[in-house]
């Protein structure tokens, strides 16, 4: 297949998913409203700090955590739930018997996840910026955006690995993806420094891409860190992404073969 055909096929998933969002617009509005309120609630915890300077920093610390976690969750969920979604709609057999490479299919879902994640993050960021009088004078927004981009492949890779679960176990797989997401939330220092974790849990934070993404984003937004300050964390994120994406694709292809052998590649599991 030519590159243009592959790109066209990849875009099919982006276009289809945005069309579905448009059709489920009421759900979308509710999810966005919840996201905004959730981020504001977390930011308001910062107001428990008495000192105004520390309070502002604390609010920003928490809001950055909520925003980045929101973005990374969208990436992870959209990729991880792509199989569940197809099964729920009853289109899994149609999509899987189409003459497209699985890598094209999954890349399309990843591309949609990034665009959708950016859209949601911008909406929430706008609402948060209007609600809190955030002081971003010291912030390096370019570095923060770079962190977002560099961290994305690692979360897509985790999503690909998690997407295998609904393929293997149609009934319980989706729930199992929440376990992975929950563990990342716990160990990545989204709302607190990872040094607060019990010693036995801390090694998990070392392998979570969330840890490096959050550390870098906070350094960029709270302390104005430049890319040259952040390169060690960014390099780790690149390495994690470079490992997780091929691993995710490989494990997905193994799981697809297993599903084809055992008859699980169907709408009703």
């Amino acid at each position: 297949m030519k590159i243009t055909s592959e790109l066209n096929a990849m875009y099919a998933f982006v276009e289809r998913s945005f069309s579905l969002i448009r059709r489920y617009i009421a759900w979308e509005a509710v999810f966005l409203f919840y996201n905004v309120v959730n981020t504001l609630t977390i930011g308001l915890i910062g107001f428990t700090v008495n000192d105004p300077a520390e309070r502002s920093e604390m609010v920003l610390f928490l809001v950055v955590g909520a925003l980045f976690w929101g973005f990374m969750s969208v990436l992870f969920e959209e990729v991880a739930n792509s199989i569940t979604w197809e099964r729920w709609e009853g289109t899994i057999e149609y999509t899987f018997m189409a003459p497209i490479r699985r890598v094209t299919h999954l890349a399309g879902m990843c591309m949609f996840a990034v665009l959708y994640g950016i859209f949601r993050t911008v909406v929430v960021l706008t609402a948060v910026a209007l609600f809190f009088d955030l002081n971003l004078e010291k912030s390096n927004l370019f570095s923060a955006l770079s962190v977002l981009i560099v961290a994305s492949p690692a979360f897509m890779g985790l999503g690909l690995i998690a997407a295998v679960l609904p393929l293997l176990s149609p009934e319980r797989g989706t729930q199992a993806t929440h376990i992975i997401q929950g563990v990342i939330l716990l160990v990545s220092g989204i709302y607190y420094p990872v040094t607060l974790l019990p010693g036995w849990l801390q090694p998990l934070s070392w392998i979570s891409p969330g840890t490096y993404a959050l550390e870098s984003a906070r350094a960029a937004l709270l302390k104005g860190a430049t890319l040259s300050d952040l390169w060690p964390q960014l390099l780790i994120l690149v390495v994690i992404g470079a490992v997780l994406i091929p691993f995710g694709l490989w494990i997905f292809s193994v799981a697809e073969k297993y599903a084809m052998r055992t008859g699980k590649l169907k709408r009703n599991g």
Binding site: A9, A12, E15, S19, L20, R23, Y24, E89, Y94
Partner: peptide, 24 residues
């Protein structure tokens, strides 16, 4: 198939556009 496997929230044209793209 016996049950039309579509994105039922989407229109016929949207479903067909999706099919056209994935079939190249």
């Amino acid at each position: 198939s016996v049950e039309a496997s579509f994105f039922k929230k989407l229109s016929a044209m949207e479903n067909l556009r999706y099919a056209a793209r994935i079939y190249g």
